[in-house]
Design a protein around this nucleic acid. Sequence first.
DNA 1: GCAGCAAATGTTATCGATATCTTGATATCG
DNA 2: CGATATCAAGATATCGATAACATTTGCTGC
Lengths: 317, 317
Amino acid sequence: MADLAKVAGVSKITISRALSDSPLVQRETRERLQALAHELGYKLNVSARNLRLRRSHTVAVIVEMKPSHDRTMLDPYPLILLGGISQELTAHGYSVLLTTRQGATAAAVQAADGLILLGQGSRQDAVRRFDKLGLPMVVWGAPGDEHIVVGSDNEQGGRVVAEHFIRLGRRNPVFVGNPNHPEIFERLNGFVAALAKHGVKPLLIRRDEFTLASGGDAMHSLMDRGVPFDAVFACSDLLAMGAIRALNTLGCTVPGDVSVVGYDDMPLAASFLPPLSSVRQDWQEGGTLLARKVLALIGDQPQQSETLPVELIVRET
Amino acid sequence: MADLAKVAGVSKITISRALSDSPLVQRETRERLQALAHELGYKLNVSARNLRLRRSHTVAVIVEMKPSHDRTMLDPYPLILLGGISQELTAHGYSVLLTTRQGATAAAVQAADGLILLGQGSRQDAVRRFDKLGLPMVVWGAPGDEHIVVGSDNEQGGRVVAEHFIRLGRRNPVFVGNPNHPEIFERLNGFVAALAKHGVKPLLIRRDEFTLASGGDAMHSLMDRGVPFDAVFACSDLLAMGAIRALNTLGCTVPGDVSVVGYDDMPLAASFLPPLSSVRQDWQEGGTLLARKVLALIGDQPQQSETLPVELIVRET
DNA sequence: GCAGCAAATGTTATCGATATCTTGATATCG
DNA sequence: CGATATCAAGATATCGATAACATTTGCTGC
């Protein structure tokens, strides 16, 4: 900028003003300087500006990201939220600093103007760690009173599936998933509560992995134990698909003998054989909302937690 | 830091040295100052350091990311590469600045120490735009001579599928995909060349979308035209799955009448019915390599393009 | 006892941009 | 015509860290 100023025969500050379209500089001068800057290939030094302005126009997104081949694809939801987040932040001139939990100690995170936590980052211990940074922060997941949380309505998710099963006349439903995970716990809650209204008590099969294998395995162990069941609510589409395959192998028909509903409505659900019924969350909207809230917080506008509705897509299972 | 210095009764620079574990400061002093800094909750100002050191310890990853519900999931590969990239960069104290092409004009990108381009960013016009920034840059995709490219061996991918078809005695293979895309063009090349050695000439069905619908559609149009074919090489697993479904509907059996091979070996491929044969790329490794090369370039070590081998997973289609 | 040197710490300048306060020139008005 | 308002541009200080150079202190060896 100093060089530019010398070439143009003005002072640094005039250059600064001209480049930021300040009305303090005469239009002609401004345009001349802008043209000159462009011509000389001048690049603003962001670090210097950040230092001076005491803000980085950057939001750190902290993701729980396991590197294994399946995991990344099987559990891609944090990454999908990224789409909405990135779009919204970019539109407001902010950048996304992507970090895993391990990397979050890196200095760069402290430079961020705000924080978005995705994935199991919602685990309380993890969240508190970032709390200490004192940055505007929004968390994806199940609502609690400690933080500003955006998430889809997992309780509603459980409820609509329960009602669906009741409507179908199912009396022995099974829930497959990991209730230690707060979001899944909410689904279970909604499921159990809605069923209770009809005097039905579901069976809980705890599975920690969100894999096809795990879903199949759950069905096998159910059959082995000889427990009667006529409906399965799986906490992810993959669990559901694995379950259906296993049920077929075991001689059960879906949806004849057993109804199955998955979660997330991944694109493949629709073309699974048979087409899978599933609960759909609006990730794009979730991401957008997360971003919007951090930006608002950064702008000192108080925010509240918010829950997004889900939708049961009834197909053939 | 100045405050800390005052409290500790030393000068700023001593604080700076102590906190960066410089041996210029006596061990006792160093430890005392570190403890004090921790106690007072001192946070390094990254912008200031970046300014002074003229580097940001940040690598910008520019992704072609479409926001639609399907797209993100259907075409998640840029996001998967992110896993490897992020892991490797983090391990070396670097951060990942995630940007879409639109957002790449944002100032923050210029502050990065290096650039990684993913997705269709490999389109020449886009790549050149970033070239001008003069930053160390590595591109994912098909090798060209202009840039340093990391990618999987798409030609080999085409070749192994061709050989597989020949081995099965197929004489009328079809290629489904968008050859405008450089990576897919390479697959086509390898496919055609390997088939030619056996006197076989494949049919090309151009499809731009990587969706189930598109795959089905391709099969329908083939049948309508009455073209005989006995093998399909689809450029993505989704295309392949769509094709198989359509073939079944049209009264063809897979793999009886028609062999089908997909690409990417997504986790679901294995549990598709019938289990899908597919070409697998090692995304994790690809990401790691991308990151490693940018880091090397940043460290002024010259680098070359590199191609990763792929593997044909033969299942039942 | 003092040159000479090493170890530990301090001083000053600097990275590149911008906020605040001035200054000088022109316009406006009674 | 002089006083004040208005506008354009400059001077200086500052953001928070660190590199380069400077200084102090304590010690060795002759």
